[in-house]
């Protein structure tokens, strides 16, 4: 991971989750939280610490281990005037309530001819790198991407956690908000007061003329570290943090490829069905003439995630894999 910490990097990604939620709960009494162990316990990842103390049991609700009831109840509340923020502890568990993400929440507005809105947020701890094994380590943002009707955010920095959380909670559309487990301990600058990051705006985190690296969440620090290493070899990489998958800022990607003529997508979800496939298909369709080399995807391998650190490294993106992919393009 990139060691780019500076003296201003004083808040963690983890505490920024609670900060982002708290800011919205202070300004809007219709925001309520529900989930397993999120109350006095502060969440198993400690991402809701302080909310129960500040807002009390009528705004922060501990639930049974009932993923369908959690997300289903959030939907019913959202349809009737509340702005619920539901936590699904590990994103792998979204499979237990997938009906709500695939069939109910994204469909109900459309199939009723616009009669209802569903302003809710489903937050979930996503991704690998911590040795939690096959059922607690997956990057599943691509699951959500298969379903029209869900907005998808996946921040990489503490300030973006706060700014995207503001947009997510204020959104009148349903949002799946992926918090990366591997980033919880990372630090960054605090979000300024009133910080809002609009959905669908990728951030250019590093400029470079030779290759575009498109990243999301955990792969952002990977891409930045790879870019530092490549710079030492004389290759200047431009690093884009998509921040959201829906709306997808393909305009920013095309604009960058226009400058660099080379594209590497770095995604933690599996190569099969991963979001990079959608990004590169848009570039192939609308930016074919911009490219001077084939596109590359550095993605999760098409295997369940193994437990051992050394094995896990084999199958998820690493700095080395990104550097190798870029080198192979540079000599193309």
């Amino acid at each position: 991971m990139a060691d780019v910490t500076t003296a201003q990097d004083v808040v963690t990604y983890r505490e920024s989750v609670a900060e982002g939620i708290a800011r919205e709960m202070r300004r809007d009494p219709s925001v309520v939280c529900l989930g397993e162990d999120i109350g006095a316990a502060g969440g198993v990842f400690k991402t809701t610490v302080g909310l129960f103390e500040e807002f009390g049991p009528e705004r922060v609700w501990d639930t049974p281990i009932s993923e369908q009831a959690i997300v289903g109840a959030a939907m019913g509340a959202a349809m009737t005037g509340m702005r619920p923020v539901a936590e699904i502890m590990f994103s792998d568990f979204l499979a237990c309530c997938w009906d709500y993400l695939a069939n109910e929440i994204p469909k109900v507005r459309y199939m009723t001819g616009g009669q209802v809105t569903v302003p809710l947020v489903i937050r979930t701890a996503n991704g690998g790198g911590l040795g939690f094994g096959a059922q607690h380590s997956q990057s599943v943002e691509n699951w959500a991407l298969t379903v029209p009707g869900l907005k998808i955010a996946a921040p990489s920095t503490p300030a973006d956690v706060v700014g995207l959380m503001a947009s997510a909670i204020r959104s009148d559309d349903p949002v799946v908000f992926f918090e990366h487990k591997g980033l919880f301990a990372s630090k960054g600058r605090p979000a300024p007061d009133g910080h809002v990051v609009p959905f669908g705006e990728a951030a250019v985190l590093r400029q470079g003329a030779d290759v575009t690296l498109v990243a999301l969440a955990s792969t952002v620090p990977l891409a930045l570290t790879a870019a530092d290493r490549l710079a030492a070899e004389g290759i200047e990489a431009e690093v884009l943090d998509l921040r959201c998958l829906i709306p997808l800022d393909v305009t920013a990607v095309l604009r960058s490829v226009e400058r660099t003529s080379r594209l590497v997508v770095v995604e933690e979800n599996p190569y099969q069905g991963g979001w990079g496939g959608t990004v590169v298909s848009v570039v192939a369709d609308e930016g074919f003439e911009l490219l001077d080399a084939p596109v590359k995807r550095v993605a999760g391998a098409n295997v369940p995630l193994p437990f051992a650190d050394a094995l896990e490294d084999q199958v998820i993106p690493t700095v080395d894999k990104v550097v190798d992919a870029v080198r192979s393009l540079a000599t193309y």
Binding site: Q68, A69, V71, G72, A73, A74, M75, G76, A77, A78, M79, T80, G81, M82, P84, D99, Y100, N103, E104, V108, T112, V116
Partner: peptide, 21 residues
């Protein structure tokens, strides 16, 4: 607030509307 065609799915949704009330 709707007719749902995945058997049983709307029961938690109805619970959510009651929670909201």
């Amino acid at each position: 607030l709707g007719s749902y065609a995945i058997v049983g799915a709307h029961l938690p949704i109805a619970v959510g509307a009651a929670w909201s009330a």
